[in-house]
Simulated assay, not measured.
Amino acid sequence: MIELVCNLHSHTRFSDGVGFHRDVVAAAARAGLDVVGVTDHNVWVGGVQGYYDRVLLLVGEEIHDPCRQPQANHALILGAGRELSMWAASPQALIDAAREQGALVFLAHPVEYTPRWLQDWLGEPALPWVDRAVVGFTGLEIWNTMSEFKARLRTPLHALYYAFFPPRFLRGPFPEAIRWWEQLWLSEVPAVAIGGADAHGHAYTLGPWRRVLFPYEWLFRAVNTHVLVDRPLQRRPEADWLVIRDALQAGRVWVANDLLGSSRGFRFEARSGHRRATMGETLRRAGAVHIEAVAPAPGEFRLIRFGKGVVARARGRGLHYLTAEPGIYRIEVYRGGRLWILTNPIRVI
């Protein structure tokens, strides 16, 4: 497997970002990304997808119904290759139309909270996904950097504090999002979890203070999606997108706050007899099951079984667990008390 570090949620001046596509790609290159996605609001920009030096730029779209009140239900569409915002009024019709185009659909910032003062002052409402009866989507953007930032700003003093110490607000996905995700898997809906920046590059003003809190480059060094592809990319944008799409759809993915240290090289697998499985895959038992995770730096490992909670812990650079129990297993790794790595699960049957 070949690892790609991706960030699939950003915006340009074509919607509400401050940079152009070339600025986003340049920031992604400086941050060490392999793949960056631009997902402008309700507009698909043709003619710019491709390689810029070593970085692959993917052009998708973040679609919502601007007439809906209150606002909700933002969907990240990747790989449609055409405009789909005409389907925005019906989330299910949008998902169906995207799938017909061979695209992936991730429910953006599916759980979101915004303090009342922030809504009143900056007009920043919460934008959760509320139509949970939809089917056919690929997964959830379970960890969104900017969503978490908004939720942590309980008072203006919190805003001032995090303006000067921005890495400290990143603690992990909201518990409600985790519960929803696990329930989907337990209901036989293998939703893929990804993470994203939701990068706009904006400056923020608080009284006399004006500070560019989250330039593209900083955000692309934070919450990223690491994808394991099964063959090398060929520097052919359309063909390489298909390789990445297959890996994302399969769930060979983990999410990491790379500000805590690069998670490149992390691995998580289960084996039983001669059979092996990694994230997003199913392992059929042939005796006892060995579950292993290895990280490139020390941390606190937690092995979580969906519906049961933490079943094993370890400190150091790895975890090994022996079990005969079927279940859906995932890994979390913490550094300094903060979530570093969150994996998609392996199903053991």
Rank of each mutant, 00 (worst) to 15 (best):
R252H: 00
G50T: 12
V212T: 15
L8K: 05
D65E: 04
L186S: 09
P232M: 09
F268A: 06
R313G: 08
Y162S: 01
W185T: 06
L283R: 03
F220I: 10
A203G: 15
E141L: 11
G251P: 04
G337T: 13
I63A: 00
P91H: 01
R82Q: 13
D230S: 15
F165N: 14
A193M: 15
I328Q: 02
V36Q: 12
G336E: 14
A288L: 02
S90E: 11
E238Q: 15
G50R: 11
E124Y: 12
R313V: 13
V36I: 13
R276M: 14
G47C: 09
L84I: 04
E182W: 14
A247E: 05
R210I: 06
Y52T: 13
N144M: 08
R267M: 08
S262H: 05
D120Q: 12
A27W: 02
D230F: 14
I291W: 00
A159K: 04
L233P: 11
R132M: 04
Y321D: 12
L228A: 14
W44K: 02
L322Y: 08
T114H: 15
L157A: 08
V36L: 12
T282Q: 06
I2S: 13
R236S: 15
V229P: 06
L118V: 10
R315N: 14
F137T: 03
A98D: 00
H74N: 03
G102K: 06
L78N: 02
R335N: 06
P91K: 00
V38G: 10
R347D: 11
V348L: 11
R68W: 14
I328K: 00
H274Q: 12
I194V: 15
M86N: 05
D230Y: 13
G316W: 01
I77G: 03
L94C: 05
W143T: 01
N257F: 08
R235E: 12
V105N: 02
R168D: 08
A29L: 14
I328L: 05
A293N: 12
R338A: 05
L94Q: 04
R271H: 03
G196W: 00
L58T: 08
I346Q: 07
N224I: 00
Q183R: 07
